[in-house]
């Protein structure tokens, strides 16, 4: 079974719930278990929040194009925006073993994306913007 669908959303935080419904539908088609489906939804939410905050520098400055591709053994989610190039190398990794007083939650979104998804690729097309491709594979037996 292969299925691809694309939708375009206004880059604002209120869109996150609608994007989540769209991605949850894809995870459902992929027959992911509840926890894996939740994690894919979380990764996409984090990525879209980053696009709004960092690529567009705030709400209402553009759109997020979300494509999912469901295959038998994996789901691929591609997010395209027309904002400023987002360099993931510049985001420091959170120190997860730090004491409470030293935690600030910064960099957590990108960390979760990388931890959850099996493949994460950032591309910067010549025409501008960012393309983020994320793949989650189904675990054997799930």
């Amino acid at each position: 079974m292969d299925r691809t669908e694309t939708r375009v959303f206004v880059a604002q935080y209120e869109s996150l719930a609608v994007i989540d419904e769209f991605v949850a539908g894809a995870a459902d088609q992929a027959s992911f278990d509840e926890c894996t489906a939740y994690q894919v939804r979380l990764a996409v939410d984090e990525a879209c929040s980053n696009i709004i905050e960092h690529a567009y520098g705030g709400e209402g400055s553009g759109v997020i194009e979300c494509t999912y591709h469901v295959e038998d053994d994996c789901i691929t989610v591609i997010l395209r925006d027309h904002g400023d190039p987002f360099d993931p190398q510049l985001v420091p990794e959170p120190n997860l073993s730090a004491d409470l007083g030293e935690r600030n939650g910064g960099g957590l979104g990108l960390y979760l994306i990388r931890k959850i998804m099996d493949d994460v690729e950032f591309d910067f097309p010549a025409e501008g913007g960012n393309v983020l491709t994320m793949v989650k594979r189904k675990e054997a037996g799930s």
């Binding site: 939410d45 984090e46 929040s49 409470l100 007083g101 935690r103 600030n104 939650g105 979104g109």
Partner: peptide, 19 residues
């Protein structure tokens, strides 16, 4: 139903203040 890192950051800040 769902908590993103934006929610997690709130919980960390509140825990710091409470403790």
């Amino acid at each position: 139903d769902f908590i993103s890192s934006a929610g997690l950051r709130v919980l960390i800040d509140v825990q710091k203040t409470c403790q």
